[in-house]
Design a protein around this nucleic acid. Sequence first.
DNA 1: ATTCTGACCTATC
DNA 2: TGATAGGCCAGAA
Length: 123
Amino acid sequence: MKNAATKQDVPAPKHQSFFEDVWDVVRQVPPGRVTTFGAIAKYLGTKMSARMVGWALNAVHYVQPPVPAHRVVNRLGMLSGKAHFNPPSSMQEALEKEGLVIKDDIIQDFDKYFWDPSAELSL
DNA sequence: ATTCTGACCTATC
DNA sequence: TGATAGGCCAGAA
């Protein structure tokens, strides 16, 4: 299995791309709230698949300002990207610090803290 | 240039 | 009911 942050991973794109859109949306997520890959993908466009969102977050380590990727989880509210954090436990700690309750890598009352860009931003 | 993979989601068998 | 395949974009080998 290829380990993240092993070599260069994914360098930040020089030109404006779909990646920056994802980061921009994630940065708009208010503290104590979480969003999902699918929500972001849907907000950017139906043609966008959730995979790309996750891939965009892969380059977050090289982006500034920093993106609160810990607020982005999968549809189940599971900390899927936990393993990609530094350290992995920092994701859960960051969320707990914001008042969220996490158990077994799953956000409790996830739907209550769920922040949908399509609904909140409502463009 | 081609091939493969990746923090996912949805539909179908 | 669980498992499998497809879809989308970008970057590395």
